[in-house]
Design a protein around this nucleic acid. Sequence first.
RNA 1: GGCCCGUUCGUCUAGGGGUUAGGACAUCAGGUUUUCAUCCUGAAAACAGGGGUUCGAUUCCCCUACGGGCUACCA
Length: 511
Amino acid sequence: MERTVRVRFAPSPTGALHIGGVRTALYNYLFAKKYHGKFILRIEDTDQMRLVPGAEAYILHTLQWLGLEVDEGPIQGGTFGPYRQSERTKIYQEYAAQLIAKGKAYYAFDTPEELNAMRERLKAARVTAPQYNTVSREWMKNSLVLPKEEVIAMQQAGVPCVIRMKTPHQEDIRFHDLIRGWVKMNTTALDDKVLMKSDGTPTYHFANVVDDYLMQITHVIRGEEWIPSTPIHVLLYRYLGWETSMPQFAHLPLLLKPEGTGKLSKRDADERGFAIFPLTWKDPTSGVYTQGFREKGYLPEALLNFLALLGWSPSNQQDIFSKEDLIKAFTIERIGKSGIKFDIHKAEWFNQRYLRAKPDEVLVAYLLKALEENEITDTQGKALQVFRLMKERVTFPQDFWLQGKFFFTKPTVYDEHILKTKWTQQTRSVLQKFCNTLKTLVPFKDDVIKSTLERLIEAESIKINQVMPIVRVALTGLGAGPDLMQSMELIGQKECLSRIETFLEQYPSPC
RNA sequence: GGCCCGUUCGUCUAGGGGUUAGGACAUCAGGUUUUCAUCCUGAAAACAGGGGUUCGAUUCCCCUACGGGCUACCA
């Protein structure tokens, strides 16, 4: 009998969600929707030391922004709650007690210093992997070797202790990964993992297994960094008697640095100026803001499309996918195995595509909003015309303003390069003459302006590509932009004249 | 170091025992445009290396190299 698909996204609220985490969430979401299952959000906040205020809300906002609706979670509720691990401590304690009773786990009283000493000792003895394991536990301070009375006495005295898992001595543990096939590991490589910390809270491994079982998770889709600890999880399912309902595993390839070596990090993003967080994040301790994809102008649908194709590919050669398309096409089998060098270029291209596909009203609204923010009162008519000239040129919503503000405000700086290469005695004289003709030009329309300029160019026997850039710089300050004649018409006769005159005054003679 | 996972154009990838090894982004060139961008056309660009297996291997197996992950009372 097929179980209903139930997958979970289980982030730790230790800061802003990383873009890799967003991709993991997306793959889980797509898989759930594809099979009409449930997408569950579980907050793994067992480590109270690393907890960051605001991080959980950030995760929620991110999923919301991206349209990854959560079926069950801390806010949404559900029949398998609570969905915050910090609220489930009792549950873990019960199952830990069960493992102790079964002889599958034990108490350990070793202090950090003692653990360190053990590792040092093993290292000195040239043990390749110094661990608390089937061998070393024999000479440590735990309930396996200590007399029962002593253990009880220590517990009564309140000596801090953890619960460790009793790993079998030498056994092959294998598990099937939906992406990688069978993975085999021997327990000699495993240590006796801490299941419950001395403060009574569980570690990741334990809470994860208990919750996945209790929440009836069918598929665990998570990052590749978890492969080495999956045998521990398998063992735990076995110890708890849950092996038959163990979820299926799928370990996703990791997002890597654009160049060089290592996992993609916030630092890479900062150094190269691309976003790594979905939304802008203010670090509560340093107060430093890190701009997110949203604030950089990325559209959620563009980011989703970009992310989906980072490690997954469809069976055809389609590259533009709506969320619905992705749900339809997504399969775990088509997820790749190798690490992915993160390259932001394609994301920009996706954004441009999605942005330009938006209805005109939406796009004009971006410009209108920018005008409002810059306290420019303008008739909607002009904004609409500006928008039409700009539409094919933008990648991000803010480009309408960034590249088109000259329509509304006078330039304050002039393109150095154009000035250096095109500003000559001749172009100055042509610009002056052009300005003079403009004064009496009726009507002030793009085609009329154009023919005027063309006549002038012919009379002066100068090349058009000598004059145009200078006219553009005088009017807009920029070296490139939308159609100049249409731009002039929009700027208006009076304003054009004023701008050219200002320019001529500021640059009286070519340098 | 040990254990585990991986390796097709610069990047994301398709493919798979016999292919002109396909696409997208980026790059470059040509066209369009007064310019830049867009758009159109085109070009350059890859099976990590070595052994097997096979009539034949980029595809299957092994080794090496390289890359990545893990190796905490973090997740």
